[in-house]
Simulated assay, not measured.
Amino acid sequence: MTTEKRLARSAPSSVQATTIASSLLTVQTPGRGFTDLTSEAAKFIADVLARDGALTLFIRHTSASLTIQENADPSVLVDLATALSRLAPENAGWTHDTEGPDDMPAHVKTMLTGTSLHVPVLNGRLALGTWQAIYLIEHRRRPHRREVVLQFVGSNQ
């Protein structure tokens, strides 16, 4: 029995983290849906002259979230929104409904999708795949003002 080598790994690289740079990104959402933050994240990386390290994005809310998803076919985002609505429907008899019928399902959707992302930065660029984008997901029906903390840790040019 022979085993084919199906894995490959580049040689490790090492940098001394000399920079911690932070910024607060304010996003006005149009209501329920996805807002692409990729270009803002890339601009932040360029502005801080990042070279190698990591970008953390953290949303300061409990009814909106962050995700990395496909950016080529918009129907992916439609189907993802449908899936989230099926997992946490508004008419499920939630106890917490002080802010309306979409509030508790929004909290559940945030728990399922997450409030932070970690993206490697290599040679001054986000190490996203070809079809990946960074999205803020607004889970509430009405528009909201959302805050996302951007923080780069690593070396700069």
Rank of each mutant, 00 (worst) to 15 (best):
L24E: 13
A64Q: 06
F34T: 04
L87Q: 14
E40G: 06
D36I: 03
M104K: 02
A46N: 13
S75N: 11
I45C: 11
L84D: 07
R60P: 02
H61P: 03
L80W: 00
T82H: 14
T29E: 09
V76W: 06
E70G: 03
W94V: 05
G53E: 07
G31E: 13
R51A: 14
Q28Y: 03
N71K: 15
D52H: 11
A41I: 02
D73Q: 09
S85K: 12
E99G: 10
M104Q: 05
T95L: 14
T62S: 08
T29C: 11
V27E: 13
S85M: 07
R86D: 11
A42V: 10
L24R: 12
T67W: 06
D47S: 12
H96M: 08
L25Y: 04
T26N: 15
S63F: 04
R51G: 02
L80N: 00
F58T: 01
T62Y: 02
A50P: 01
S75P: 03
E90L: 01
T95G: 09
E40R: 15
F44M: 06
A21W: 05
V27K: 11
F44E: 10
E70K: 01
L66W: 06
A64D: 06
F34S: 10
V27C: 06
D52G: 02
R32D: 08
S65R: 02
V27L: 10
L57W: 02
I59R: 00
L57V: 04
A21R: 09
P89S: 12
L37P: 10
T82W: 08
T62N: 10
Q28E: 15
L66K: 04
L66F: 08
T38M: 09
V48W: 07
G100P: 03
P30L: 07
G31D: 12
T98C: 05
A72S: 13
D79C: 09
S75G: 03
T35M: 15
D52P: 01
G100W: 01
S39R: 13
D79I: 02
L57D: 10
M104E: 08
G31M: 14
L25T: 06
E70D: 15
A83P: 00
K43S: 11
F44T: 00
L66H: 04
A46S: 15
A41N: 06
H61N: 11
S22W: 00
L84M: 14
D36Q: 09
L84H: 00
E70V: 00
G100D: 02
T82Y: 08
S39C: 01
D103A: 12
